[in-house]
Design a binder for these strands. Sequence first.
RNA 1: GGCCUCAUCGUCUAGCGGUUAGGACGUCGGAUUCUCAUUCCGAUAACCGGGGUUCGAUUCCCCGUGAGGCUGCCA
Length: 503
Amino acid sequence: MSSIRVRIPPSPTGLLHIGTVRTALYNYLFAKHNKGVMVFRIEDTDKERGTKEFEDDIINGLTKLGIAGDEGIHIHPNSRNSPKSPNSRKYYGPYRQSERTEIYKKYLQELLAGDHAYYCFCSKERLDKMREEQAAKKLPPRYDGCCAGLDPKESAKRVAQGEKAVIRLRVPRDKDVRWRDLVRGEVAIQSGELDDFVIARAIHDPLYNFTVVVDDHTMEITHVIRGEDHISNTPKQMLIFQAFGWKLPEFAHLPLILNEDRSKLSKRKNKVSVDDYLKEGYLPEALLNFLALIGWNPGDTKQEIFSMEELIEKFTLEHVHKGGAVFDLKKLDWINGEYIKKAIKDDVDTFYARISDRVQGYDAALVKKILRDPDFEGRFKKLSEVPAELAPIFAPLPDYPLNLLANEKFKITPDILKTTLTAAKKKAESLEWKKGDSAKAKAISDAMISLVAELGLKNGQVLWPIRAALSGAEKSPNFATLAVYLGKEETLKRLDVALNKLK
RNA sequence: GGCCUCAUCGUCUAGCGGUUAGGACGUCGGAUUCUCAUUCCGAUAACCGGGGUUCGAUUCCCCGUGAGGCUGCCA
C-alpha cells in the first residue's frame, strides 16, 4: 500500500467553522485508518480577507480538538523545531500559501512557457460588461477568449513594461473531464462548460485553483477529501494537473452540513464557530463523535457513542453519505450529556479541572462529591449548565414568594404548610449528619417520608414544601440530596426562613 | 438561466431484489413513595411521484418533481 497523504486546507477568512472541522475530521480518520498522514496548510492567497487572528483561531481550534494534522503544523508545541534531519520531509510550519509564492511563480512560468496558459489584458470593465450582456441573453458567463490568440512573446513584453495582466489557463474545447469520485462515483463534465479561467492575478499572485493543484502535487497528496461545494472546482483543477502532466489524486466529495431549512450551514442561521461550542461546554470528543456521524455511518451497528480509536478503526469512505445532513443540535446535546456522564464516572478530578473556572468560589471537594451523586447524574448537557444546577446548594437562598411552598397540585393549605414545616424541622433537628455525607441521604429521606403517615397527609403535601424550602426553586434535586449537601445547619436555617414567611 | 449533485420516520441513519423497513435523537405516554433531571418500559412516525426491468422493487434504469451546490481577478 502506497502511503496515504491527505490534507486539510483551511482559509483564514473566518473563525474555525463546524464544517471545516467535519472535513478535517474525515480527513483525519481516513488518514489514521490507513496509517497515512494528514497535511495541514493555510490557504491564505486572499490578502484582502485573510487575517492572522482567524489563522490562529483555526490552528488553536483544530489543535484543541486534536485533529490538526501530522505535518504542516505544530502538533506538539514543544516539537516546533524538532525534525532536525535535513532529509525529513516534515515541516512543522504551518504550510502557508503566502510563503510559497516563489514555488507558484516557477510553475506559473512553466505553464506560460508551455502555452498552457496566457496573459490576458482585458479590463475589468470590459469583462463586467460582457458578463452583463451574457446574463441578459441568458447565456452562461464565459470569457470570450479575447486575449487567447495574442502572441506570447508580445504579451511578455507588455507585461515586462509594466502592463497589468492576469493569467488564464488555456482550456481545451470539448474535452470530457471525468473522475471516479470516492463517495459519488462517476462525475463528468464537458470542458466546454468551462471558460479560460484566471489562475493568477499576476505572476507573483496566484489564485486558489492553481495553488491547490501545485500544493497537492508537491505535497504528494494522494486523496483530496473535501466538501461537495468543491465539486465544480474539481474539473478546473484536473485540467491544471493535466496541463502539467501530473498524476491526479483521488477525489472524494463530502455531503454538506445543512441548516434546518436544508441550505448550506451558515452563520446567519446557526452557530458555526467551534470556539463558541467549546465555550458553551461541549466536550471536544462529543463534538467529534457527533460530527463523525453526520454524513457517515459506522455500518451495521446500533452504537452511537464512539471513541476516537473506534472511529479510526471503523472509518471508510464507502460509508459516507451523498446527501447533505441537517445539523441537529438536540442530538449533539444528547451526545454531549452522555460524554459528561461518562467523564464524571471515569475520573471526577479530571472532569472537575474542566469546569473549575465555571464554579469558582464553590467548595471544590464538595462539588466533586455532588458531581458523583446519582441524583446529579445527567443533569448537565453542557458544562455551562453546571453552575446553575449547583446553585440550589452553593448560591444564597433566593427570596422566593410564599406560594412557591404551596404547590396547588397537592392542595397545600397554609395550615398544612405550617404543620409540615414545623414537623420537618423537628425531624431534622433530631438527626445528625455531616455536610456532604451522602450515606445519610437515606436516613433523612426515611425520616421525612415517615412524616407523611404521622401527619396523615399526602406525599406531595409533605415533601414538596420541604424541597421548596430547601431550594427556593420550582425545580431542584430532591430534598434529601439537598439536605445532605446543604448540611444540617443550613437545612434548619432554610426551614426557618420558610416558617417565617408564614407569619 | 446554465452546469453539477442529491432524495428512507420531524432529524441523523441501517438497508446493498424477497425484511412485520431496524436503530438513535426528538416528541408523547407510563414506572422510579415531591418537582426537575437521570434511568427503565412503551408508543409515535419514513421508502418524493410516474414509467420501465424483474416472478418480485425502498433497493437497478429512465423521466418528472423537489432540494442543494457552483456559476469571481474568494477560498
